[in-house]
Structure formats: structure tokens, C-alpha cells
Design a binder for these strands. Structure first.
Lengths: 218, 218
DNA sequence: AATTAAATTTAAGTAAGCTTAAATATTAAT
DNA sequence: ATTAATATTTAAGCTTACTTAAATTTAATT
């Protein structure tokens, strides 16, 4: 399957949350940086390939086959992230950027070799779960967004859900890293801001960041 | 630049030996598995991009820019070969197959990280020289084809110039590996065959193999 | 409920990278 | 030196993955 198709099913899978509008052609188009018309065209094409269900003006829904393809691409992406992170001195953002390309140039055979080499990890350096070769993915998620945590408690960072370079620069600068502990020193609920303490530094985060940093109770 | 273009300049670079016919569109087409017409079209297009010189019915000649691009792709290919070979339990053929895809999905930045990690190697696991980031490549080659070696002398394997799975299966089976020593126990010049001794086994090779196995005097 | 705004779809068109078939040029053979 | 064989090029056409613009449908607003 082509790069365009792989990215299309991946975008649907990632947008498939609560709001069904998120998987309408327009939102997929926005995510992929293509026109709405192109997304509609592709949707029809993939429906004919039995990768998704398409009904005029409705949200797109991946079939089992489409979901499997999306998970396969995501698996490759996250395995590359884990490998590059382990081997090279690269930022999370750089790792993400490279994996975005490599995921489409990776055979299942190579993906299995990478996984094996890494000890079949269940999570990548962002804390995102890595689907296994059968398309099974860890979905049990006891973590919560930083915005939902309780003042005075200490947590460990479990996920950094972003593709943004500046966000990762910020994380690197301040020691926010998968597995690291942080203290929620103050919640400013009205203003939707959270103060955390890490390495004796106090940092105030607004909702842009508190919604994408996920943590687990210790 | 696209995968098609990268493969095209690479094919010209690799075919550019003594016989100028080798870089005519037809031979490039054969190498890439596309039609002659497609190769002619592409040649014209790349000429307009200043990657090669095209004159009707003549051999294609890469410009400096085209050569640089070819070397850049080859660099990525051979760095991937070296990395996969080091990390994973994969045959030379498998490594080649994967690198053929990965080379087009690799930024210069990542190539430099791989090179660094490997200690900036000058040769890949086939013994082929790896161009550096500036497109400089080791061309001093004191090695010779097995067909040109002298009876009774011992050599070390310096290159295995093939993409063929069966050939690499044969090599793996018999301990023919980059850097390994072999004794040329007999030359059957009339029949263009060579007998070598390796690990106390005598193996007789015909010219299909003696022309692609390169060795250095010790 | 009617109107306006926004999103989606259809239609027409483009560029890349191919194909096959026919025309043309080159090379090899008699 | 012709002729035959081979290679190259031109021409026409296809598929993929896009684009913009117009038409249609859905959703939001008054």
C-alpha cells in the first residue's frame, strides 16, 4: 500500500476518539495537509478496498482490515522511535520526524527484528503503546492528563502526546521525560493552569501543555 | 527528490564503468525494471534538472550534481547495511533488501547519526566503500576478482559484489564473509573455475562467482 | 422555520511515473 | 553497401494523488 494510503488510515485511527466529527473527511484533510476534495476521493477509494466505511457526509469508519493496517503503521513508527531513541543522541521531536518517514519503508520482517532487538517493548519513548505483530495494543490506561491531577501528589510521566518541536524542546530543557517523577505543587483550576515541581524548579503550565502531558500515580 | 529519481541516478552511477553503452537508457531501464520509453522520459526530465547530460541515442552522463545525489543515496544505503548488520541477525541479502527501501526515507541528519554511531565506517558489510557526507568515496582499490588470483596464495575477502539471495545463502553456508581468509588452492584457467580452501573445505567456483568475489593479498 | 454559514462532494484539470505501440535511428550481418 | 536486427524515441494513454472552483448538503443562527 502507498504512503498516502498508510497515512490516511493512520490519521483516521488517531482521530477516532469521542467526537465522531473528527473522522470526517475535512478533519482528516486538515490533519494530512491536503484538500477536502482529495480526502473525499481517497475515502471512496479506500471504501472500495474495504479499508473503511464511507457514507456521504458521514464520519469515516475504519473496517477491521483498515484498523489492522493503521496499527501496523503505528507499530513501525513507534518501534523506530524506540530504536532511534536508544541508539542515537536525538530529541523526541527529531525521532518522531524521522520515524514518520521510516514507518513507510519498513517490512514486517524488519519491524519484528527491531522489536526483538529492543526486547519487545510495550511503550515508545513518548509513552505511547506499541502494537504487537498481531495488531494488539495495550489500551488499559490508568494515566491521566496533568490537568486532572491532585495538588500535593507526586506522579510519574507516562506519556507526552505531541509532535511539536517546541514542546519537546521545553520538555528536554526541564527534565520532563517518560518515567520521571513530578510533584503537582498547585492547581489553578479557574485559569486552567497547573504548577509542577521538578528538580527543584517550579513550572506553570497552561492547558495547551497540561492536556498533552499524561502521568500515573506512583 | 522522489524515489524514482534517486533510483535512476543511482542506477546510472552504478552502471558507469568502461562500456559507455551501460548508461544508455535501455540498460538503465533493464536495471530498474521499467520500459525503455519510461527511461528516456526520465532522462529528459533529469537533464532539465541538471542532474545529467542527455543527447539523443547517446549514453547518459551524470553531472556533478547528479553524481552527488547518487553518492548520497548510496551512502545511506551502505550505512543502513552496516547498521542492520551490526544490530540484527539478518543475512546480507535481507540487509540489502531492507536498505533498498530505507535509503529513500532517510534524512542527511539521520545518515550522519548512523555514521557517527558506527564510528564513521569506510566500508559496508559487502566491502563496498561508504561515501562520506561530502560525497567523497574511497576508490583506491587494491583488491582483485577471485578469477585473477594466484594458485597457492592466501587472500582475505574484501568485497561480495552481488544483490542475489542465492549467492549470499551460498556465502553464509560456506563461511565466505567480508574479512575472512581464503586459500586459492587451484585455478582451472581454461574452464574459468577456481578452487578455494576455507575452513578445511574445498570449494570449486565457476566464473559467475569468481567475478563477483573480490579479495586482497594479505 | 427560514436564512446564512460551513462543510462536503462533484467536476475538471494537473504532474509524476509508468505502460504499449508505432516511428525512427543506430548497429550488426550478410 | 544494403539489408536485417536491435535500440531509442515519440506518441498516446493510464493510474495515483493531488489541486481549484462550483454545486450540493448539512449545521448553525437568528
Amino acid at each position: 500500500m502507498s504512503v498516502a494510503i498508510e497515512n490516511f488510515v493512520k490519521a483516521i485511527y488517531k482521530n477516532d476518539n469521542n467526537d465522531s466529527n473528527d473522522t470526517k473527511p475535512g478533519n482528516i484533510a486538515k490533519k494530512l495537509g491536503i484538500s477536502n476534495a482529495a480526502a473525499t476521493d481517497m475515502a471512496k477509494k479506500l471504501a472500495s478496498k474495504n479499508l473503511l466505511q464511507y457514507e456521504k457526509y458521514q464520519a469515516l469508519q475504519l473496517t477491521d482490515e483498515g484498523t489492522k493496517m493503521a496499527l501496523n503503521v503505528i507499530r513501525k513508527h513507534r518501534l523506530w522511535e524506540a530504536l532511534l531513541f536508544k541508539l542515537f543522541d536525538m530529541s523526541l521531536h527529531e525521532i518522531h520526524r524521522e520515524s514518520e518517514l521510516l514507518e513507510h519503508a519498513t517490512s514486517n520482517f524488519l519491524a519484528d527484528r527491531i522489536s526483538e532487538y529492543l526486547g519487545n517493548p510495550k511503550f515508545d519513548p513518548h509513552g505511547d503503546p506499541i502494537p504487537n505483530a498481531n495488531g494488539e495494543i495495550t489500551t488499559i490506561d490508568t494515566s491521566m492528563a496533568l490537568s486532572n491531577t491532585q495538588e500535593g501528589k507526586t506522579y510519574v510521566i507516562s506519556r507526552l502526546m505531541s509532535d511539536d518541536k517546541e514542546f519537546f524542546d521545553f520538555c528536554a530543557l526541564n527534565g520532563l521525560k517518560y518515567g520521571n517523577p513530578i510533584l503537582v505543587s498547585k492547581q489553578f483550576s479557574k485559569n486552567k493552569m497547573t504548577q509542577i515541581t521538578i528538580n527543584n524548579n517550579n513550572i506553570v503550565l497552561n492547558e495547551d501543555f497540561t492536556n498533552i502531558i499524561y502521568v500515573n500515580e506512583i
